[in-house]
Nucleic acid binder design. Structure first.
Lengths: 189, 189
DNA sequence: TTCCTTTATTAACATAGGTGAACGGAATTC
DNA sequence: GAATTCCGTTCACCTATGTTAATAAAGGAA
């Protein structure tokens, strides 16, 4: 699965030994439901590739509201970027929604991979670039479209999330309250 | 100025010849007010470092509303990431707000720099990572705080923008209408 | 099973922010 | 420098979304 993810992002096949090296440096770990992969205030040491299960990152503001920032199911990467890359305390929590199996890549091993294989370097750069493009677009949409529009776009872009992610989290991802999402969904059918 | 920007991001001094190489590969260009550095639908060939003046990137939705995504004044980098990095048509326009002087770096020269100097590689990776962290945080805030709070945070984080960027653009950056920003500003004094 | 907690829905009411219009002052254009 | 367009402000009114509360269904724990 991870091999497929790398090759799809790179748009080319990778040699077997390159893949073997990856598997030696990325550890597999299992988590129960509601376990934390990262906690705000603490250091987030890993970049996670989800093999099974699902999780989400969220921000808790001063008022104590949880705000979903990203969802990750099978074949998604997730981390707290500012903590992982810059060794600052994490801004977000990352919490599993189900029992989850993930590959953990720490920064030292990331560097090892990037230094041995230009293709790894390119892969992780692409990951960053793709995420960046997605976020820019999401900001623009969040600021310019109403909740109804945003929900419909979300449903088209991520139909697989609709099945697995609780609605109150989708609502917070969209920047609205669960009651408002209910209202919108009712109007749509 | 650009040298300072690179060293500040890297948190270390760079050798003279490295800087010389950069200046040979990044072209300086001047723009009038209201000129486009990138246009939605077209390819965005450059990453721009603003030496003088200011510009902003914005998204135009189906209704024709302009939505400011990023501002850039002196010492800021700006580009349409998905177009520049992945050779897709640009999603955003980038337009000058004043007569502007910028350094233009195309992708070929970016690669040249990164391949000759690991420090350049690191610098541009850091740029990406920092932008990513900022955007994640901005999404979380946009979704969880009201306009008043967002405006006050914007004023604290970017006081220099308040002087130079027209209010109707700041409003659209914050996801509200100019009238609402006026209302908020009035309430604040 | 039974109990308890979490999630989704609905409704009545409250409010932040949108809309359209009008006005004055800058800034641009000719 | 007169004419015109653009920008910021204000106002009255409107609408989308928030709030509070009640209910029911679903899911976990014992």
């Amino acid at each position: 699965m991870i091999r497929n993810n790398i090759e799809k992002t790179l748009k080319e096949k990778i040699p077997d030994e390159m893949f073997t090296q990856f598997r030696e440096l990325a550890f597999e770990k299992s988590f129960d439901k509601k376990q934390f992969l990262a906690e705000a205030g603490k250091s987030c040491k890993y970049q996670y590739f989800i093999e099974q299960g699902s999780c989400y990152s969220y921000y808790v503001n001063e008022k104590g509201d949880k705000n979903a920032v990203q969802f990750a199911v099978e074949n998604y990467w997730i981390t707290d970027a500012s903590s992982y890359f810059s060794d600052k305390p994490a801004v977000f929590n990352i919490e599993t929604l189900e029992p989850t199996k993930a590959l953990l890549l720490n920064k030292q091993n990331l560097n090892l991979l990037c230094n041995t294989h230009p293709l790894f370097d390119r892969f992780f750069r692409l990951l960053l670039q793709n995420t960046l493009a997605t976020l820019h677009y999401r900001i623009a949409k969040t600021n310019s479209e109403d909740a109804d529009h945003r929900y419909r776009e979300f449903s088209t872009l991520y139909p697989h999330f609709l099945q697995r992610i609780p609605q109150y989290l989708i609502a917070s991802y969209l920047g609205i309250k669960p009651q408002s999402l209910s209202r919108i969904r009712k109007k749509l059918q």
